[in-house]
Each structure stands twice: as C-alpha cells, then as structure tokens.
Write a protein that binds this DNA or RNA. Structure first.
Length: 418
RNA sequence: GGAGAGGUGGCCGAGUGGUUGAAGGCACCGGUCUUGAAAACCGGCAUACCGAAAGGUAUCGGGGGUUCGAAUCCCCCCCUCUCCGCCA
C-alpha cells in the first residue's frame, strides 16, 4: 500500500513510478480526487458531530439541574436530519479510497532497469542438449504424471520411490543450509490462511483469481510461504530487528490463464514444495538485506552445483508488491533454457503498511513501518527437475549432487530398477 | 457438534446509558536521590484522521440497531477460553 500522504505531497514521483511499471497513472488522479472529497466530507461530518456532542452534553447537565431539555433536544433532532446522510456519503468515499489504495502497486526502485531483464551473472556450464526431466523421471520410476492427473486434475503429479526421496532430501537439505549456515529460524506455518493475510502481502484483492479458496471457511491455500510467514507479525510492533525466517510449505496456484503453456513436466503445476526466506528489517537496511538474501538463495544452487544466472527484473516486470526483484534462473538442458527457480524481492514498507508491522526506532519513540523481503531458496519441484536434467548420464542414470548424498543414504546415483 | 464464559490502551485489569480516551498496576520516557545502578519519589506516556493553529472527530473484537447521548442496552458475525462429545 502506498503512503497516501506521500502521494498527495509529491504526485509527480508516483505518476512517473507507475508509468515505469506500465501502469496507467490515471488511477492516481482518481485517488487524489477521492482523497480530496473525503477530506471535505470529514470536515462537514465532524462539525456536525461536534455540535451534536456538545448539545447532548447540555441535555445531561439540564436534566441533572432539573431543567427542561425539550428545546435542546429539538435542536439535536435538526442535526440528525442531515448527519446520517453525510456520514453515509463519507463512508462510501472512504471505502472506495481504501479499495483503490489496495489495488495500486508498489513503486519500482530507482536503480532498476527499464525494458529487458539485465543479466548480472552467470555461473556454470550450459550444455545444449539434454533429456526433459519428465522423460527421465518416468523412465526411472520417480515421477508419475498420469496418476497425479487421475487423482486430482491436470497440472498435478505424483512422486514415487526415489522421486519422493529426492524431494524430501531437497527439502531437508535446503532448510538445514539456511538454518545452520545462514542464520534463519525455521517455522512451519499454516497452509491455509484468511483473507486478511492474503491482503497483507498483496495477493488480495487484486489477484483473487490466482489462488485456491475454501469459500465456506473464508480460507485460502497458500500460494507461497511468503503469505503466512510475513503475516506472522501482522499488527505487531517488533522489538527486535532484523528477523530472518525460513519455511517449507507446499504452494498452491491456480495458474489461471496459463492453459497450454508448459503443460508437461513439473515446471508449471498447481502444487509444489518451496523453501522460502523471509526477512524483516529497519527501513535503512533493506537494500543490503536483499543482496544478502539473494546470496542465501544462490548458495543453494552453488552447493548443489547447478548452473544458473542472476537477473534483475525491469520495472514493468515487477510483482505487484515489489520494489526490486532478482530472479535466479537455473539452466535446464532438457528444455534447453533457463527456468526461474527463485525470486528475491524487497518490498520496502509496502507490505508492512498493509499489515501494520512496525518497530520503535528508540524506546518510547513513535513506531515506524518496517521493511519486508522474501525469496525462494528454492522452488523444490523445479530443483528436482534441474537435478534430473543436469545429472543425467549416458547410461540412463542420474548422478546425485554430493551434498545431497547424506540425505539419501549415501547413494551416488538414481538408476532404473532392474 | 452440545453447554457455558469472555474479547477494554504495548501488557494486565477496573468500568452496566451522560465532562470515560477510559480508574489502578506493569512496561516505557524524563527528573530528584545515588560514586554508579537498583529501590523510592515527582512528572510524562494510545492511535488515526481533519485543521495553518486553537481545537475537533473517531476508535473499548467486527458490523448493524435503539437513544438527544452507548465501552455500557438489542441483533448478527468473528475470535478465544472451559467442560462434554468426536478424533490424528
């Protein structure tokens, strides 16, 4: 959520920012117009309320003094003819303003590019030819797409035997790395959240089509651990900063509008596992925290020995709540391209404002909004796929990255059962 | 699912229709005292909005209603706790 005061004081900066994002800045004109109407109405309403309150007080005094308040009461009645109308009007304008404010995206950070994503670094070899992970997975008995579809729907899949073991090994490995080497605290949050939480991180109301809901319970399946973990501290004044959390959760996404795209394999599915990193920092510290957090995510790719690159997203490619985002893309020889495997973002105070997460700069000082950040470390399904494609050998087996072997009973490769 | 209790400020906790934004305590901030600290004592201490300011308005889980006036009365919803039932 943008700071309405800041928009009012410096609309040009916000217009320019929205334009960089490819948004129509007209929405700001509407916002400012509503804001002005609202403030006018507030003055009217409060003036009437003030009159009503003082007259009511007089009635109290008159009654206690044994006087007859009938005349004053009739004056209050006059006010009560107009007040409710104005109040209703104010309420309508205020809620329209609130709705609008919740649907305006964050401003991009000044230093990020316009146009194309900029590649910041590339690590590892990128062989041109390979076999798609779904073929390897099916052949080795690790992946069963057909039965996933039978049990649920298209874009669901089933892992079996070594496939399930690899998934579980990846989850443990990734968590252990962040907990032991990078100082994160693990949490296991609820996988269903309420709409206040979805609103807090920015998925709701604008992107309600993108996640699954349990209508009659008022709950939604988490599309990312970002939602429950960032909302941990909704409506709180934090005593200690920075905070660093990591969490494994399944992620559920409707992928509405992606019909026909990437229908094979695990790249785009309705349910996948992910390890998430979430940070809360003081305002001045979030830029450095994003660099650190992205390096934390990269450390997973590096220790697994997977080829990848880091790109910084251009302004018109940013997610709704983000002000700056680095994507990590893993090389997948089977599909012969880089595939996004992590997205690390700084949200500034955009989410904190929605969630009212604050801290006190000094004891007794006025609370300020914190900054929030998060990133995947990593998307487990896509990592699973990358390991199969990058570890695939001539003899049909898949070599297991050395760091994962302790999580797989010391095994060195996956082979077809004889 | 059944029965009951309850949701008040950063926290605990008074308050059942009229200067109550809300007693008291804790925490916190400033001061006195002290070599320093603690203790004690004195003072301060909610948030948001409107306003140049003076000041005003709103907020006692959320929404609606009664009333000249609601933290207090009525209705609906949400949440928490206790007991019973069921259950991994």
């Amino acid at each position: 959520m943008l700071d309405l005061n800041a928009v009012r004081n410096d609309p040009e900066t916000y217009r320019a920012g929205l334009r960089r994002r490819g948004e129509e800045p007209v929405i700001l004109e509407k916002l400012l117009e509503l804001d002005q109407r609202r403030r006018l109405l507030i003055r009217e309403v409060e003036e009437l309320q003030s009159q009503r309150n003082s007259l009511s007080r007089e009635i109290g005094f008159a009654k206690r003094g044994g006087g007859d308040p009938a005349e004053i009461i009739s004056r209050v009645q006059e006010i009560k003819k107009v007040l409710p109308e104005r109040e209703a009007e104010l309420k309508a304008v205020a809620s329209e303003l609130e709705r609008l404010l919740l649907e305006i995206p964050n401003l991009p950070a000044p230093e990020i590019p316009d146009g194309e994503p900029r590649i910041l670094k590339t690590v590892g070899d990128t062989p041109r030819h390979g076999t798609p992970h779904w073929e390897i997975g099916e052949r080795l008995g690790m992946l069963d797409t057909a039965r996933g579809v039978k049990v649920a729907q298209a874009r669901f899949y089933l892992l079996r035997g070594d496939g399930a073991a690899l998934e579980r090994a990846l989850i443990s490995f990734m968590l252990d790395l962040q907990i032991q080497k990078r100082g994160y605290q693990e949490v296991i949050p609820p996988f269903l959240v309420n709409l206040d939480s979805m609103t807090g991180t920015g998925q709701y109301p604008k992107f309600a089509e993108d996640f699954f809901t349990c209508e009659k319970d008022g709950l939604a399946l988490v599309p990312t651990a970002e939602v429950p973990v960032t909302n941990l501290h909704r409506d709180e004044i934090l005593e200690e900063l920075p905070l660093k959390y990591t969490a494994w959760t399944p992620c559920f996404r409707r992928e509405a509008g992606s019909y026909g795209k990437e229908t094979r394999g695990l790249i785009r599915v309705h349910q996948f596992n992910k390890i998430e990193l979430v940070r809360f920092t003081k305002p001045g510290e979030s830029d450095a925290a994003l660099e650190e957090l992205t390096a934390d995510a990269e450390s997973v790719l590096e220790t697994l020995g997977l080829p990848y690159r880091r790109v910084v997203l251009p302004a018109d490619d940013l997610g709704f709540s983000a002000r700056k985002t680095y994507d990590l893309e893993v090389w997948m020889p089977g599909v012969e391209r880089y595939v996004e495997i992590s997205s690390c973002s700084n949200f500034g105070d955009f989410q904190a404002r929605r969630m009212r997460i604050r801290y006190r700069p000094k004891p007794g000082a006025k609370p300020q909004f914190v900054h929030t950040l998060n990133g995947s470390a990593l998307a487990v399904g896509r990592t699973w796929a990358a390991i199969l494609e990058n570890g695939f050998r001539e003899d049909g087996s898949v070599e297991i990255p050395p760091v994962l072997r302790p999580y797989l009973n010391g095994r060195v490769r996956f082979e077809a059962a004889s």
